[in-house]
Simulated scan of single mutants.
Amino acid sequence: MMIISFKDLNGIQVDLSFEKNTFSIEARHVLVLAKHQKKWLLTKHPKRGLEFPGGKVEGNESILEAAIRETWEETNVEIINVEWLAEYLVHDEKPFCKAVFIAEVGYIEEKRPNFETDGALWLSTDDFLHNNNNNNNLSFHMRDAGMKAILEKVSALEGKWNNREN
């Protein structure tokens, strides 16, 4: 089992694994990576900036249900064929675990108002890397070593993405 350990840009220790159930803390947070027509689905959080959609599990919902709900609430995008990719443990004052998913875009609602974020934003890989290199508008957790490792893993799964990019 390989764990990638790093400090995020706030100086907090984070451990990342691409194997399920690596950590003793159950994942109750989600992060979703989806591509559509060769563009990444991001959302603009009013305080943190551009980031992949995600959030916390609510009530009795499963981690998968939370990933689908949070993506919809933040971007007005319905995701399908959602697959677990990774999980990471954030050693904050109260440690928590976040599951990372990859997904296909099923439906995009253009008319519904957003309440949690400024809505969906679509970036090509070049645009994403350009933003990352210049640190323009990207949320702090989109610029750390963990996100780099996650994106490298997704790139290694490029065959799956080729089937997903309608």
Rank of each mutant, 00 (worst) to 15 (best):
D126R: 09
V105C: 09
E73F: 02
E158Y: 14
P95H: 07
K160H: 13
F140Q: 08
F101V: 04
E116N: 04
K153T: 10
N60A: 09
F140E: 06
A103M: 12
M142L: 05
A66C: 09
F96V: 05
E152R: 09
I79P: 03
N136R: 08
D92T: 06
T117Y: 00
G54D: 01
E58A: 12
T75W: 01
I80M: 14
E78S: 15
A145W: 03
E58V: 13
W161D: 04
F52A: 00
A67I: 05
G55Q: 06
D127R: 14
S62T: 15
E109M: 07
N131R: 11
I150V: 10
R143G: 01
E61H: 04
A145N: 06
K153D: 05
G119A: 01
F52E: 01
V154E: 14
L157Q: 09
E110V: 07
T71L: 02
E65T: 06
S124K: 03
V77T: 13
R48F: 06
K111Q: 11
V90I: 14
Y107K: 14
D118C: 04
M142I: 01
E73T: 02
E109D: 15
G119Y: 00
V105F: 05
K153Y: 08
G119H: 02
A66F: 12
V82W: 06
D92S: 15
F128N: 05
L64S: 05
H91I: 07
D92Y: 15
C97Y: 04
G159I: 10
V90L: 10
E116C: 00
V100R: 05
T75Y: 02
L123G: 04
G55W: 04
S62A: 05
N137K: 08
I63H: 03
V57L: 09
S124Q: 04
N114E: 07
E78D: 14
A156L: 14
R48H: 08
G119T: 02
G159D: 12
K111I: 08
P53D: 02
G119S: 03
H130S: 15
W122V: 00
P95I: 03
D127G: 13
P53S: 04
H141Y: 13
L50F: 08
G159M: 08
